[in-house]
Design a protein around this nucleic acid. Structure first.
Lengths: 208, 208
DNA sequence: TTGTTTTAAGAACAAGTGTACGATATAAAA
DNA sequence: TTTTATATCGTACACTTGTTCTTAAAACAA
């Protein structure tokens, strides 16, 4: 007899795969799914897996055991925490080759946050960036770029003032406007030659 | 002749496992390691895996294919994004049982951020929490608790005002002080009976 | 009804994979 | 030198696991 709803079983399978993976740390075998979803044949599982794969709900490598993957599982990235950033001190710049060996600490993040970009992280020391909504102890994720587009949040080194600041970047008539995220704070105007972009902020993480 | 340094091979194996996992999304088989590390027998790999396991460098389930795990790989957690939080609207409260099925969206996070707690996430809408250093579009991670200790950052529902706010919680002589994270903003004083704790903020994530 | 499609069942097969056994080799210790 | 411990090699076996085949029940349409 035909069991419950149509794709009910497939939903169950997806959930089971996720739970199994969370618990065990590796993907289930076809027979694991069979038992876990209370099916009595591997052929049933096989069939649903084929459908799910054609729908791009899962991925698997033929000929490889336990190779089922959920798309969002593939995207965790190891991010090196290079050091601490504070107003008045320059960001320690390292070649991206040496990142993974030099990093004091690393952070495991999902691609949803980094969006696949090659980033590094810095711990923020002090409240000098409070006007950019960045507090003491926060971690900022930076994409190492030298130039920025209008509206980007950047880590800028103010050469004359000898200060690093995190603000939104706007180019206006050869001058540069650095706009705090907090609209109640006033922007900084400076000459283009006075600033050096250290990186573009792609994310901020604060743990309490 | 005895090959290079003593545990040189084991280091190579560890690195290979990590790279293989990063590339493929599942753990290598013994024979994959054999080929990848230019060894000519599975027995060699087997021997080193045993040593590595006794040193707690890897974990594996006997009888389960492709079950090798590196300890730091196990600590990512799936967090359900339950909805949107905005000033004036209550937080949608769900039983933790239904989280994973009801969630519109999920976020893959490392245990370093959530610190192993059972949390849920909310997207912040609007700039009404700007004084708590939380901007429009931010994601807050909340631990579902009903009470808070002094100093905790909480999501509090102000009953009379019909408003949700994120502030630091301090109990003072039967009254409650809600202190904005931004020290330039003034605190809110209210009666204990007028607030209902919705959850404790454990982290804030902002992507730009 | 009849036919078609989808889902399920059970079993058998083929291939992937972990493990054990025996042997050799190098290095350090006795 | 003889031990002892560790690293390597080759191979065979047994178990795990993916795949296929046949049969059949249920849902849907004509």
């Amino acid at each position: 007899m035909r069991k419950p709803g149509v794709n009910q079983t497939r939903r169950k399978i997806i959930n089971f795969i996720r739970e199994y993976y969370d618990e065990k740390g590796y993907a289930p075998a076809v027979r694991d799914i069979m038992k876990g979803c209370e099916l009595s044949s591997t052929a049933v599982v096989q069939h649903h897996l084929k459908v799910l794969e054609s729908e791009h709900q899962i991925e698997r490598d033929s000929k490889v055991f336990r190779s089922i993957q959920l798309p969002d599982r593939k995207s965790t990235i190891r991010v090196p925490v290079l050091g601490t950033i504070a107003a008045g001190s320059p960001i320690p710049v390292l070649a991206s080759d040496t990142w993974h060996t030099e990093a004091v600490d690393t952070l495991e993040l999902s691609g949803e946050i980094t969006r696949g970009k090659d980033v590094f992280a810095l711990r923020v020391s002090g409240q000098s960036m409070i006007d950019a909504l960045i507090d003491d102890g926060d971690i900022v994720l930076l994409e190492p770029v030298k130039r920025a587009d209008n509206g980007d949040m950047v880590a800028a080194w103010l050469i004359k003032e000898e200060e690093v600041t995190l603000k939104r970047f706007f180019k206006e008539d050869g001058k540069v406007r650095l706009q705090p995220a907090n609209t109640q704070m006033k922007p900084i105007y400076t000459d283009s030659s006075n600033i050096s972009i250290q990186g573009r902020v792609v994310a901020v993480i604060r743990t309490l």
